[in-house]
């Protein structure tokens, strides 16, 4: 999309675990470049290794092969320059929402005054819609509100990159849509380069610039990449009404249903993208691939 230098380069990223039968390779030669401000979604079947990729980018899982360059510098450990939103919000239950955000803010902005740090945390908590509930403990918040805190915590660090690991996977459909809007709004204001992992096809289309489809594990890799053509800012109704929406939708589903086991690195010709149609199946009904 953009021609600027990539913010994040993943070069032949590989993760393997030693096992009795030799090394178990989860992800192999995962190569992908992120342009500045780009929103990329990783989609694939459960257990294919997409979360492993995100975990490696976050520095929470050790990289066993290949490398990663973040803003021109090779990185292999975790740090607050990458804000992470986990599937379960991972709030510390003995701290209020505000204190949870402050924990990170204090860590990153230790030179700022106490007042400035407080304002920063309050600002992001207000933006995600928790202005009135920021001094509640996570136990007193709903699942959706907790995830709002998780999002505020990640953005308050003003990181170089945002990593989202199935952030809305545990929410009901309505809350999910609400939080997608909150996320898009924050993303638009901060122009953060983002990597999200999901198995929700509609979520991937609505949020992303590019959707990266992963092949099934073991030895998972990039199977196909789909550019999402809708201009921003996006409105859900307009996007859903666009005829290209179904094309994207079908492309992704076809990959997941028919081609995810085929590794492009093993065959020479990649199948033509976006042409396969499966009219005999009601695709609307299986928009979310569980399992």
């Amino acid at each position: 999309m953009t021609t600027r230098a990539p913010v994040l380069e993943l070069f032949k990223l590989t993760k393997s675990y030693p096992s009795a039968k030799g090394a178990a390779v989860i992800v192999k030669d995962f190569t992908l470049n992120f342009a500045a401000g780009e929103f990329i979604t990783l989609i694939g079947h459960s257990g294919c290794g997409k979360s492993t990729v995100l975990s490696m980018v976050a520095g929470l899982t050790e990289i066993t092969g290949g490398g990663m360059i973040l803003a021109g510098r090779e990185t292999n450990e975790a740090g607050p320059d990458r804000g992470v939103v986990f599937q379960s919000p991972c709030l510390l239950p003995w701290m209020t929402a505000f204190e949870n955000v402050m924990l990170g803010v204090n860590q990153v902005y230790f030179t700022a005054s106490k007042e400035e740090r407080r304002e920063l945390a309050e600002y992001y908590l207000t933006v995600v819609g928790l202005g009135g509930a920021m001094h509640k403990f996570p136990g007193d918040l709903s699942q959706g509100m907790r995830q709002r805190v998780g999002i505020a915590r990640a953005f308050a660090l003003q990181p170089k990159m945002l990593l989202l690991d199935e952030p809305f996977g545990m929410l009901d459909a309505l809350t999910k849509m609400e939080l997608q809007e909150v996320l898009l709004e924050l993303w638009r204001r901060n122009k953060l380069t983002t990597l999200m992992v999901t198995h929700d096809v509609d979520e991937a289309i609505f949020l992303s610039d590019r959707v990266v489809m992963m092949t099934d594990g073991p030895e998972a890799e990039v199977g196909d990449i789909l550019e999402i053509p809708f201009e921003r800012p996006r409105h859900r109704a307009t996007v859903l009404a666009d005829p290209r929406y179904m094309q994207c939708h079908n492309h992704l589903l076809t990959f997941l249903n028919e081609r995810s086991h085929i590794r492009p690195s093993r065959i020479q010709t990649t199948p033509p993208a976006g042409t396969a149609q499966r009219s005999e199946i009601d695709i609307h009904g299986i928009s979310e691939l569980a399992g």
């Binding site: 976050a58 520095g59 929470l60 975790a78 740090g79 607050p80 990458r82 804000g83 992470v84 986990f86 379960s88 991972c90 510390l92 924990l103 990170g104 860590q107 990153v108 660090l157």
Partner: peptide, 12 residues
């Protein structure tokens, strides 16, 4: 592990 990940990400 989630809590420890928070510590790791924030480099506490």
């Amino acid at each position: 592990q989630d809590y420890l990940n928070v510590a790791k990400v924030l480099k506490l």
